[in-house]
């Protein structure tokens, strides 16, 4: 029944989209291949398309570097603490901003809107961080990014759809606004809060620019910057005494493989949460911001 309705146009669209899928995946697949490859095996194929080696030298090399563990730790800290601050500031603030009985609400909203049109820019922000003595402090990666205005708007749009009647009865029972938010509103808002949390978490994990500007101590670098250092100058790292001691034990250390193994390690957390993210954005949670 259904088959008869598939037209030539359908087939063409599928073929075209499949080609695009291959183009999208090829560079990613290539990274995975190279991270497990040895130069000798790569040279044997004109195009290295099929995995002929499964060599984990690159991975054992990067994981024996003590810095990667420090960097993973930093990224984990920034992601957990940063997301926590993000979500508290965003949900609490968004809830209060939807309450019309709060005097000054419109002024706050206008202030937030202006900040979307205009900002101080790189240098004044840098000077501010310096004056606040946040340089070389991990909170310089967290506090300047405590709220994302788009996510705030999404949260506000959601809270607007919550019927007032839910709060009325609690108010009569003498609950204050904080109690109402924590006990009544947040429990029913969990899907939206979860979606925003995931988006914030990915942003925090991917954050590199504030670290790049504000952290001088390379031992405090998050994974993103560890990767960047590796990509920019893998030779410097591999010529270090640590690397040479490693090479003397295992001969087949391949710079490109080391780089790509680091890429894979940095992607992995994003891949793990991606299925959950995907469920949220395809259900339309993230749409509200632009419709406003």
């Amino acid at each position: 029944m259904k088959l008869s309705r598939v037209s030539a146009a359908d087939v063409c669209i599928h073929i075209f989209l499949m080609i695009v899928v291959l183009i999208m995946l090829l560079p990613l697949y290539n990274v995975l291949l190279i991270s497990f490859a040895t130069p000798a095996k790569i040279a044997k194929q004109i195009v290295y398309l099929w995995p002929t080696s499964f060599d984990i030298t690159a991975y054992s090399y990067i994981f024996s570097d003590s810095q990667i563990w420090k960097s993973l730790n930093v990224s984990l800290f920034v992601t957990v603490v940063g997301t926590l601050i993000n979500i508290v500031a965003t949900t609490f603030g968004a809830y209060a901003l939807t309450k019309k009985q709060m005097p000054g609400r419109n002024i706050f909203l206008v202030l937030i809107l202006i900040s979307m049109l205009f900002n101080g820019g790189m240098i004044p922000t840098y000077l501010l961080i310096k004056n606040m003595h946040l340089m070389n402090n991990l909170f310089s990666m967290i506090l300047p990014l405590a709220v994302n205005t788009f996510y705030l708007i999404i949260m506000m749009n959601f809270f607007r759809t919550v019927p007032d009647a839910l709060e009325e009865s609690a108010k009569i029972d003498g609950a204050n606004d904080i109690q109402i938010l924590l006990r009544i509103i947040l429990p029913i808002s969990m899907p939206t809060v979860a979606a925003i949390t995931l988006f914030y978490a990915v942003d925090r994990w991917n954050e590199w620019w504030s670290a790049f500007l504000y952290l001088q101590d390379t031992t405090k670098f998050p994974m993103q910057l560890y990767l960047r250092e590796m990509l920019v100058d893998v030779n410097k790292i591999m010529n270090s005494s640590f690397a040479s001691s490693f090479v003397s034990r295992k001969s087949d250390l391949y710079p490109q493989g080391v780089k790509m193994a680091t890429v894979i390690v940095t992607i992995l957390p994003v891949m793990l949460v991606y299925p959950f993210l995907q469920r949220h954005f395809s259900s339309g949670v993230m749409i509200g911001a632009v419709k406003e």
Binding site: A94, A96, Q101, M102, I112, G121, A146, I178
Partner: peptide, 26 residues
């Protein structure tokens, strides 16, 4: 609305410190 102000305080602190102080720094 005092509890609402308490809730919105961290958010406003963020905008004032990290959005408006740099604008002043301009």
């Amino acid at each position: 609305a005092r509890y609402l102000y308490l809730l919105v305080l961290p958010l406003l602190a963020y905008y004032v410190i990290f959005q408006y102080l740099p604008m002043y720094g301009v």
